[in-house]
C-alpha cells in the first residue's frame, strides 16, 4: 500500500481511544476509521489533517507515503 499510518499506535498512546471516539471527532463513521487503519482507504487531505489534529501531531507523524520504488517519503524537503 502506498500510504500507511500510525493511527492504531496513536490511539493506544491516547489512552486506548476507541475507533468510534476518533470517528466522532473527525466526522466519519467508525467503519471508515477502521478502513483507514487497515490501509483500505486513504483519507482526504482534510480528514488526514483532522486526525493529526486530534493527536496533536504533524501530518507526517501520522501518515507515511511509500513510493512505488519502495522508498519511504518522510514529507520534508531535502
Amino acid at each position: 500500500m502506498a500510504v500507511t499510518n500510525e493511527i492504531r499506535r496513536l490511539r493506544f498512546e491516547a489512552g486506548e481511544m476507541t475507533q468510534a471516539e476518533l470517528a466522532q471527532r473527525i466526522g466519519v463513521t467508525r467503519q471508515t476509521v477502521n478502513a483507514i487503519e487497515q490501509g483500505k482507504y486513504s483519507p482526504s487531505l482534510e480528514a488526514a489533517f483532522r486526525i493529526a489534529h486530534v493527536f496533536a501531531k504533524p501530518l507526517e507523524a501520522v501518515f507515511h507515503f511509500h513510493s512505488e520504488e519502495g522508498q519511504h517519503e518522510k514529507g520534508q524537503s531535502r
Partner: peptide
C-alpha cells in the same frame, strides 16, 4: 446511530 449518520467521504 449508524442509520442516522450522514454518509461520510468514504461512503
Amino acid at each position: 446511530k449508524d442509520a442516522d449518520a450522514p454518509a461520510d467521504e468514504r461512503e
